[in-house]
């Protein structure tokens, strides 16, 4: 019950991100959600799409270093405190969060949160126990 994410290494230099988005756009890939973690020297672009296998292939063919990572995906009501509900459960159960990002599904009044945690199996169990809605596809 996890969501696949693609992470790509990019140097923190002018034009690098747009070069990559051009490659993805030309291949007809629709980005569902995207986030960038950056340092002075490099960035890690992380995103999810509907066809991660194809994305991985396209990126490698174009000389990028990319990798697939399993994330936890949860869907919460798009209301105040929605994210906190989930974080509280993870925190109380000593699950550490490496990073997260989210996007809203406005038409459904829902928000999707994607997590990278230190212990995915444990997180899955405690989230299920607390009735939080896990998703595997977006």
């Amino acid at each position: 019950m996890t969501v696949n994410q693609i992470a790509v290494f990019l140097e923190n230099k002018k034009g690098r991100l747009s070069e990559m988005t051009k490659v993805l756009g030309d291949a007809g890939i629709d980005l569902v959600a995207l986030t960038i973690a950056d340092t002075n020297e490099f960035g890690i672009v992380r995103f999810v799409t509907k066809d991660n296998e194809k994305v991985l292939r396209v990126l490698k063919d174009n000389g990028y270093t990319a990798t697939k990572t399993e994330l936890l995906g949860v869907e919460v009501s798009d209301v105040p405190g929605g994210l906190h509900e989930v974080l509280k459960v993870l925190g109380e159960n000593d699950v550490e969060i490496e990073y997260l990002y989210s996007f809203a599904r406005t038409h459904l009044q829902k928000a999707v949160i994607l997590f990278k945690v230190n212990d995915t199996n444990k997180a899955l169990i405690v989230l299920k126990e607390n009735g939080i809605n896990l998703i595997s596809a977006i």
Partner: peptide, 14 residues
């Protein structure tokens, strides 16, 4: 950075 050393986490690369 090749696939063997790449990570999706900044702290790993640092």
């Amino acid at each position: 950075v090749n696939e063997k050393i790449f990570s999706d986490e900044v702290k790993e690369l640092e």
